[in-house]
Design a protein around this nucleic acid. Structure first.
Lengths: 156, 156
DNA sequence: TATTGTTATACTCTATAACTATA
DNA sequence: TATAGTTATAGAGTATAACAATA
């Protein structure tokens, strides 16, 4: 056949693959997130960490790792960065001297209010072409992903 | 509050974020792909490359890069690997002596038949909990992602 | 001048093993 | 003995700049 001048490339096999479409859309969503959050210097994983600590103050590092699917070892430098920026603190756990209780600082809570507002705008823009009903339908479908071997842990 | 013993962590803010859910589901899909394809030693990007060349024989490296959202520079070692395994060949373009025409070898076509069959089983398992109607609805929603700045190019 | 393929390189993300101090 | 946090490290994935050959 060999008839690929320009614009006429057959991608139908990949377009009908849920796995491939998920990957492309996720990459585009990541790019949009970066654009929207450029003023805050916060990446998706950092945002997830701040969010889960905001909503669950006192969590340990292992609990955060498990909740977000991160490796304990990889969480350490991420927390170092956020703590170094004064957004959160590691305080000794009164119950277990091996672990820390994670809390947002006052500054971290302030920042998160602004970041959350910006994130809401990002979500709005991300799903603008789907409409509110489409967005809800998509969340329901994404929530319905359960397959054999889906332990949902340790992905980074 | 500080009442996170175990299993009661509030992830509602992230669960209602399309960006976050996309990321988690995409990672789980990647893991399942790896499990299903373990006998073939082929990664998602390699599968995408093989697929687009199978369906569009004679494409140049730049065309493959653009179609899949890869950087030209990053495609080179990927093609080196696939060519080294005898799955595809770079042949000189008769029209442009700077570029190559990419084709699957006979062995590559054979392999792709088996790989495609396995990939179909992967897609089936991946979307098993959604059902056929849910899978089609999801593909339609994923296809509907168009937002400002979505050039869909250069992501890797 | 611009484009194709290539090299070199750097930065991020992810994964594993091993260590320490506690439990 | 098991677990929490840490360190070191290795492997992918992804990004940019620059080069030679060709258009």
């Amino acid at each position: 056949m060999d008839e690929q001048e320009r614009g006429g490339i057959d991608l139908s096999a990949l377009q009908s693959s849920v796995g491939y479409r998920l990957r492309r859309v996720q990459i585009a969503a990541f790019t949009l997130f970066t654009q929207f959050m450029s003023e805050f210097d916060i990446r998706p994983t950092q945002f997830a960490i701040m969010t889960v600590i905001r909503d669950n103050p006192g969590l340990s590092q292992s609990q955060v790792s498990d909740a977000l699917g991160l490796k304990r070892a990889n969480l350490v430098p991420l927390l170092d960065g956020l703590e170094g920026r004064g957004l959160l603190v590691r305080s000794p756990s009164p119950a277990d001297r091996r672990s820390y209780c994670l809390h947002l600082t006052d500054h971290g809570q302030e920042q998160m209010r602004a970041i959350q507002t910006r994130h809401d705008a990002y979500e709005q823009e991300l799903t603008s072409s789907l409409g509110p009903a489409g967005r809800v339908a998509l969340l329901a479908l994404l929530d319905g992903f359960h397959f054999t071997g889906d332990s949902d842990g340790d992905t980074g």
